[in-house]
Nucleic acid binder design. Sequence first.
DNA 1: ACGAATTTGTGCGTATGTATT
DNA 2: TAATACATACGCACAAATTCG
Lengths: 245, 245
Amino acid sequence: MLDEPDSGIARWRRIADDLKRAIADGTIRDRAPAESELAERYGVNRHTVRRALSVLNAEGLLRTERGKGTFVNPQAPRLSYPITARTRFSENLARQARSPAGRLIRADRVAADGPLSAALGCRPGAPLHRLETLHVADGVPLSVATCHFSAERFPGIVAAYAETGSITEALKREGCADYRRRETRISAGRISPSDAEHFGLGPDAIILLAVAIDVDLENRPIQAIRTRFAADRMELLVETGSEPS
Amino acid sequence: MLDEPDSGIARWRRIADDLKRAIADGTIRDRAPAESELAERYGVNRHTVRRALSVLNAEGLLRTERGKGTFVNPQAPRLSYPITARTRFSENLARQARSPAGRLIRADRVAADGPLSAALGCRPGAPLHRLETLHVADGVPLSVATCHFSAERFPGIVAAYAETGSITEALKREGCADYRRRETRISAGRISPSDAEHFGLGPDAIILLAVAIDVDLENRPIQAIRTRFAADRMELLVETGSEPS
DNA sequence: ACGAATTTGTGCGTATGTATT
DNA sequence: TAATACATACGCACAAATTCG
């Protein structure tokens, strides 16, 4: 099928393109054939198939699980995450997705290191609550966030979040009526192994990284957030329409 | 060196980590040893070294050129690119870098397709100027942008940009005194082969993708821009400090 | 509960092609 | 032209995780 012309293009690349097409038109739906079968079908070595699969894996089209097989990632249209002074996860996605939800993955206490103490305006070594939260919409994991709060100022933040599933609500219970986003720094990189598991993505998936600082109404830093978005499921939207200069 | 304990971690991963360390502490500087030599040094097959190198390549630490060798990418600290209503490349970087410059890579005319005509508020099929520009600071390529302008409204934009090297100046000559950014959509993905060449990065490098729309003072769309940033050289900064709500 | 079959992950050795020096 | 260096591809073997009878 792919062996007639000496096209000058690597076989793994042609196979990758062919698999992409097969996924797009539904020939490959839920689960991809085993590597060994694809190798036989294309008349190539299994390594060559694996090279092709790794491309689709990195692009988020496929997810490979050792011992189980290779599966097609459900591809929803990319959701928009607006970044404004009032950036909140649940409000942001309430209109685009059906069931946004935040779940606590992990919570512990750490000491503020240099960058963190600078961001939060506390002394180095100050005790912090660290929350790791997973955000899901329509059953699809969209982002994982690591938040840092002053343990002195918000002693009960962990329990409050665990109950409410919302940072905004948890902060209200801790006496912070409102807050806003001061800045967001956006970069991109490869996913970490633990995040890959949470997202159900392969180890070469790409994430959007947003590092942000929220402040209270007196402009004092409340939390430092490090959010990882699955790059093929989300985009960040910055609207600068009304700003004068 | 790496073969004593059966650490349960793949050899290519350990080699990748070791190479990273060697790059960080300057043991490997300008150019990396040939794959065959690394293989011999680590006592592994060349394939195993290549697997390790591909990781560093994807992270932008190395750049591999066929027939020539593997080279260490100069790693400047990541520059910040503020996104505001007045986003302009040269102003943005003037304070952080020494010699920002824009160069025209390619210019041609295309017909507006669906998304483009919607973004620019013109009829589908309308003639557009398409400019591809490369932006460099301190000799390091930071971004490649593809801009679309109405060919009817800005007939001489290409020549004007070629002369001035600045979109802002070129628009002034074409009768558009000022403009501002309406929105920016940020996502991430793998680099394209042609961009990889412009950036001097490997084929698995990661880019930040910013798709933006600029409008004139009457809020009419002027240009649609698709900027690709080398993710390991730039971060985007969104400041939402003053916004009321 | 347990072993066999399946499936992916890692690694070696070899060979050949292609670009650069 | 020859030597060097990276790119692709095959085949083999075994490890590790999962599935299934």
